[in-house]
Design a binder for these strands. Structure first.
Length: 270
DNA sequence: ATGACCGGGTGTCCCGGA
């Protein structure tokens, strides 16, 4: 029987300013050639999104920008994502650009930038918990679909103590609070596979290193960028990784590109 | 226990980030 599947690379990368990071992004796209890329923290309006440079690199894109903060995008190598939604349901007055969903290369991809939630306690932490409840509700409608679905992005959640270089130093931070961890665990319990943890098992792997005290060079990081796969997609999981070398370059984002390679049913060539 | 680096805009300081 002829092969009816192909391996696709899904990646998530919090760029911390799309225009400040454009040279980095283009360099990494050329090296890694990911098929599907979720970007967070564009920190740019829709009009300021550098679509021409991204198209020149061989990618189609959709984006949901916002001045100064937030902002998410989805890139597809040799294709344009087919958008299905650009906000998470449940809070119509929420104007923060944190969610984008599309069909990309045969995968339904929810690209997200979950609120940081600091300081906690406080209104920003309450917003984070509400956002996680909205995400869980929406994810429930996606997990059991009969086709590949992924939720990828910057979740701003440290799932377990192994995912932070010093749990005590982060004890009061919003990213590690018990309510936040419980909400993440409840989300996984719907049937999602945390791709990095599934492959790395009990090994340490980080996706973020702050700008202070040479934490990147010293590998004192956090694992907060996640790729969640529904059961159909998790069955095809091949390989995962974090491109830490990107974080070690000059003028880097504080996050590194984080990716999973998955086998998906072939989509018609174009 | 504290503070330290970043990017963007409200712009040479402040806010948000994590």
């Amino acid at each position: 029987m002829a092969a009816r599947t192909q391996v696709r690379t899904l990646a998530t990368f919090n760029v911390n300013g799309i225009n400040a990071r454009l040279p980095h992004l283009l360099e990494w796209l050329g090296e890694a050639q990911p098929d599907i890329v979720a970007l967070q923290e564009l920190k740019a309006t829709d009009a300021a999104f550098p679509i021409a440079a991204i198209e020149d690199a061989g990618y189609g894109a959709i984006w949901h920008g916002q001045a100064s903060w937030n902002g998410v995008a989805l890139l597809a190598r040799g294709a344009t994502p087919i958008e299905s939604r650009r906000e998470l349901p449940g809070e119509p007055k929420d104007t923060q650009a944190r969610y984008l969903e599309a069909a990309v290369h045969g995968v339904v991809v929810g690209a997200l930038y979950l609120p940081n939630g600091n300081p906690q306690p406080g209104p920003k932490f309450d917003y984070k918990l509400r956002w996680m409840a909205r995400l869980a509700r929406h994810a429930r409608s996606l997990v059991d679909l009969p086709h590949p679905v992924a939720l990828i992005g910057d979740f701003n959640v440290i799932p377990d103590d192994i995912d932070v270089y010093d749990p005590k130093a982060w004890k009061r931070d919003a990213l590690i609070q018990p309510e936040v961890r419980a909400a993440y665990a409840d989300l996984l319990a719907q049937g999602w596979t945390d791709a990095l943890r599934a492959v790395f098992e009990d090994e340490v792997i980080y996706t973020f290193w702050d700008y202070f005290r040479q934490h990147a060079e010293r590998d004192r990081g956090l694992r907060i960028d996640h790729l969640l796969l529904n059961p159909v997609l998790a069955e095809g999981l091949v390989e995962v990784g974090v491109d830490r070398d990107v974080r070690l370059r000059e003028k880097a984002s504080d996050h590194a590109p984080t990716w999973a390679r998955v086998r998906v049913p072939k989509t018609p060539s174009r």
